[in-house]
Design a protein around this nucleic acid. Structure first.
Length: 275
DNA sequence: AGCCTATGCGAAC
DNA sequence: TTCGCCTAGGCTG
């Protein structure tokens, strides 16, 4: 589910559906029951995304934010009141349900879901790197970390203290699009190259917020243009290298590579992105 | 019915 | 670097 575009879409939708509304809260699973009872009957003041973190704000509480991090498998879905948001109705895994008279939201499998103070929220913002999806992002802050690091850019981009909201798909795709080897050290990245990466991330991620898909393939490389069948994977769009290990590179036709870097699958084209 | 995977993170080794 | 945690849904048999 979640790279930064998912969180930002949720913040946007949450704000339009729940802000200014009185909310009924429950935790059918029980793990968030005490907090849900504090929230029940309060007014929602809207939601905000910081990288992969989501903060939903409520009125009249000492800890006025629900801090949600979906982790790898968490899902948060919104819909009109009465709609079925998941195929399963298993309430034993339903961490949180929020309802207004017109809308419902359900949270399953989050890595974190807790009530936090304004100071806690501020700390998350302060500890996060610039988020390409936030208007207040200062990319130079990311640059200062990258230019003095010997860690590979493939690891740096995934580090939420460097660039917040970038996950495994955006990392793989932006490095391919900019023809940068994921193994290049941060110190080997020029400011000009960093700026290209940042600008491309902003475009890719804003598109993903707008469409709900990660589509990174340029028109001239689309499978139709290259005489191949279109494919659309579970991440919802068309990509150059993510999860395409062993398949042909959409640009050069050579085999896409994969290796585990820091516990995550890293995908790249050794020909298009030479070391 | 069981198996497998995943867009993440942090504690433990 | 590995492991555990959180779980839906697709796939296999």
């Amino acid at each position: 589910m979640p790279e930064g575009h998912v969180t930002h879409r949720l913040a946007r939708d949450f704000t339009s559906d729940f802000a200014g509304r009185v909310v009924r809260a429950s935790s059918p699973q029980g793990r968030f029951a005490a907090e849900a009872s504090l929230l029940d009957g309060r007014e929602c003041l809207g939601a905000e995304a910081v990288g992969k973190h989501l903060f939903v704000r409520f009125a009249d509480l000492p800890e006025p934010y629900i801090h949600v991090h979906l982790g790898l498998i968490g899902k948060l879905r919104l819909g009109p009141a009465g709609s079925r948001l998941f195929e399963t109705d298993d309430e034993s895994t339903l961490r949180l349900r929020l309802r207004t008279s017109t809308h419902v939201a359900e949270l399953r499998g989050p890595q974190w879901c807790r009530l936090v103070s304004a100071a806690d929220r501020d700390r998350v913002v302060a500890e996060s790197g610039p988020d390409p999806l936030r208007a207040d992002a200062d990319p130079e802050r990311a640059w200062r970390r990258i230019e003095r690091s010997r860690r590979p850019v493939g690891a740096l981009l995934m580090d939420q203290r460097v660039t917040a909201g970038v996950g495994n798909i955006f990392r793989a795709e932006v490095l391919f699009r900019q023809r940068i080897s994921p193994f290049r050290e941060g110190v080997g990245v020029t400011h000009r190259v960093f700026t290209r990466v940042w600008t491309d991330l902003v475009g890719l991620m804003e598109y993903a917020v707008a469409t709900g898909r990660i589509d990174s393939v340029l028109p001239e490389h689309e499978p139709e243009a290259m005489g191949r069948a279109p494919r659309q994977d579970r991440h919802g769009g068309e990509v150059y290298v993510y999860r395409r290990a062993g398949q042909e590179c959409l640009v050069c036709g050579r085999e896409v590579s994969a290796v585990v870097m820091q516990g995550r699958n890293l995908y790249w084209c050794g020909h298009c992105q030479p070391r």
